[in-house]
Amino acid sequence: MKRLALLLISGSALAACQTAPAANAGFLTSYDGLTTRDDTLRASIRERRDEAAANAVEQVYLEPSVLVAGAGDALSEADRALVLREVDRQVCYEMSERFTIVDNAANAARVRSAVTGITPTGAAGSGVAAVANVLIPGPGTLRVPGTTGGLAAEAELVAPGGMQVAALAWARNANVVGMDSPSLSRVGDALQMAEPFGDAVGDAFAPTGRAVRPIADPDPCARYGPRTQPAGFATRLVTGLYVPEINTGTRAEPPKD
C-alpha cells in the first residue's frame, strides 16, 4: 500500500523536489563567480573555488557558525542554538576528512559558515506522517505536504591573507517523498539538512584530487560526540521519527570555543 501511495503523489512531488535558490544573504565576502550546479536533484548549490589557492591550503580554523538575515527569528533560542551546533558538527566532520583542523586561526585558512534561513517543520503533520510510515511498511518516507521544513546556509574558505579561496551558497527543503524523516521538533528538518550541507562544504572547498583521509587521532571533532549515532537510526526505524536529542547526540549546552 505504501508503494501505491508513493506512486500516487510522487509525480507532483518530484516535479517540485529541487529547492529554489536562496537570495544572497550578504554573509560571504564576495558572491562573484558563484556558479549554479545543475547536477543536483534536491539541493540548490551555487559555488566557486580557486583551484590553485585551495590546493595550497592544509590547515583550517573553523569559526563558529552564525545566524544572519533574520534566520530562525520565529524559533526559540534553544532551537536556533541546536541548528548552529549541528551545522558546526557536520562541517567539522567533512572538513576534517580533507584538511587539518587547528585550534588557532593564526597562519591558517578560516572556514566561515552562516545559517541564512530555517523553515520550521510542522509538528502536527510530522506526527501523522510518522504513524503512517510505521503502519504502512515499505521503503522511503511519506510526509504531509506543507509541513516540511528546510535549511539555507552559506560558507566560505578564506586564506590567511584574507582572499576568498572558495564559497558556497546552499539550500535544501525536506521532500514529501524520500528519506527525510518527520520530526516533532520544529527544527527537525533543518537539523537533517545540516549533514548534506556539511557534505557540500567539503566538496566545494577541497581541491580536485584531494583524497578523503582517515580521521586524525585525537579526533578534532570529538567535542561533538561520536560521528555515528546508531540509536538515532534505531529510533527512526521503530517510531518513524527523527529525534534531535538522539540523532545529534545533543549535550545540555552547545560546545563553546
Rank of each mutant, 00 (worst) to 15 (best):
V91R: 09
A129V: 12
D219I: 04
S181N: 11
V128H: 01
A155K: 15
G209E: 04
Q18I: 09
G138V: 06
G26H: 04
P120I: 00
E94V: 02
I118M: 08
T228S: 14
I118P: 00
V177S: 12
S10I: 15
V131W: 09
G209S: 07
R110C: 02
A155L: 09
A78D: 00
L7A: 15
T36V: 11
V134C: 10
V158E: 01
P214A: 06
D180F: 08
P254V: 08
A78F: 00
G70R: 01
I9Q: 10
Y93C: 06
E63P: 05
V87A: 15
T228I: 05
W170M: 09
G146K: 03
M1H: 14
S30C: 11
L8T: 13
L67V: 06
L34V: 06
N133P: 11
R112E: 13
L41K: 10
A74T: 06
S65M: 02
Y242R: 08
T147E: 08
P120M: 00
N133F: 12
S113K: 11
A13N: 10
Y242G: 10
A54E: 07
P218Q: 06
A53R: 02
G11I: 09
V243P: 03
T19K: 08
I118E: 03
G72F: 01
A130K: 12
G72N: 01
T121K: 06
A152T: 12
E51R: 10
G33R: 07
A190D: 10
A43D: 12
V128W: 05
E156N: 12
G33N: 04
A211R: 13
D50W: 01
R89F: 07
P145Q: 03
P207R: 10
S10G: 14
E86W: 10
A169E: 14
C17P: 00
A211W: 07
V115L: 12
S76M: 00
P230I: 03
E58P: 05
G249L: 02
P244W: 04
L41V: 10
L184T: 12
S96Y: 07
D189C: 06
E156L: 13
R80P: 02
E94G: 01
Q164G: 02
A132E: 07
A74M: 08
P230F: 04
I9C: 13
V212G: 10
E47L: 13
G249P: 00
R48D: 05
Q90G: 08
E63V: 15
V201P: 04
R223W: 01
N247R: 02
V238D: 01
A20R: 14
G72H: 01
E94N: 06
G249Y: 01
R42G: 12
T148Q: 12
G122V: 03
A124S: 11
Y93L: 11
D73A: 15
N247I: 00
E154Y: 09
M1N: 13
R172T: 03
I215T: 07
A222M: 07
V68Q: 00
D32I: 10
R186L: 02
G146T: 02
G127Y: 00
L84V: 04
G150T: 04
A167C: 13
E195K: 14
A81N: 04
T250F: 07
G117C: 14
G26A: 05
R210Q: 08
S113Y: 09
L4N: 13
Y31H: 13
A5I: 10
